[in-house]
Amino acid sequence: MTGAIGYNFAYLDEQTKRMIRRAILKAIAIPGYQVPFASREMPMPYGWGTGGVQVTAAVLGPRDVLKVIDQGADDTTNAVSIRAFFRNTAGIATTTRTSEATVIQTRHRIPEGRLHEGQILVFQVPIPEPLRFLEPRETETRRLHALAEYGLMQVKLYEDISRHGHIATTYAYPVAVEGRYVMDPSPTPKFDNPKMDNSPALQLFGAGRERRIYAVPPYTNVRSLDFEDHPFRAQEFAEPCALCGAIGVYLDEVVMDDRGRRMFVCSDTDHCETRRAAGHRGGAFGL
């Protein structure tokens, strides 16, 4: 299990990994709190998961099995290249199977199947500060977190309802972690918010450009903010997955041709494939 010649295991040098691990430990100790860290330049542009990659590099061991998804899919450019990056630099095993993975780096989704103890889910985060929308000053947002003054977050949701008649935020939907820190769950759809609550897996969040790491330890209470008369509601889909027939999962719209035909299929490709392998069939299977 050796990596590419000339690189340290998992690309980053050991001192950097120790620094990041210290930040991760602090983040786990203070669930939802954004810990600053000395984010390094990575061999990929910002916005391509530099924060997530650094967190993954810091937690990977030689026996880990890595899965990388982008929007739920294992086969998109971002996922493929990050997987290849760690295969080359750490020489570790990779997988597309959620249940087999020990570390899952993700952009914009949480896998459909329930994660289990011992797994680590690493989120790529573009803007970690949930209050940034209304308060541009970092000094002030830090103070608001420190004093747990979260009225401003509620103002954002209020604005949503006043404009759209309902809370129209569908992704990066703010959550309160263990009743204390309000956290941006990264641009995952709010559909996935309930999966963060009381999850057996460790959830780590890395923002490379903004130099922040935060965490949700296993079995932590994660509550989506809402109003009493406008309670949080995850998206619901009217139809089942066209390929595997799953209901109650997050669906992507796939355009079939240039005549406007389209279908809705599982965003989580592993979930879909596993179901099909088990004989489940949707309406469009075999088209």
């Binding site: 003054e149 009225g151 401003l152 509620q154 103002v155 209020y158 309802i161 809402d226 109003f227 009493e228 008369d229 406008h230």
Partner: peptide
Amino acid sequence: GERLMAIGMRHYG
């Protein structure tokens, strides 16, 4: 409405 939300009011209406 911000101050009301800041002191914990959570009923939009």
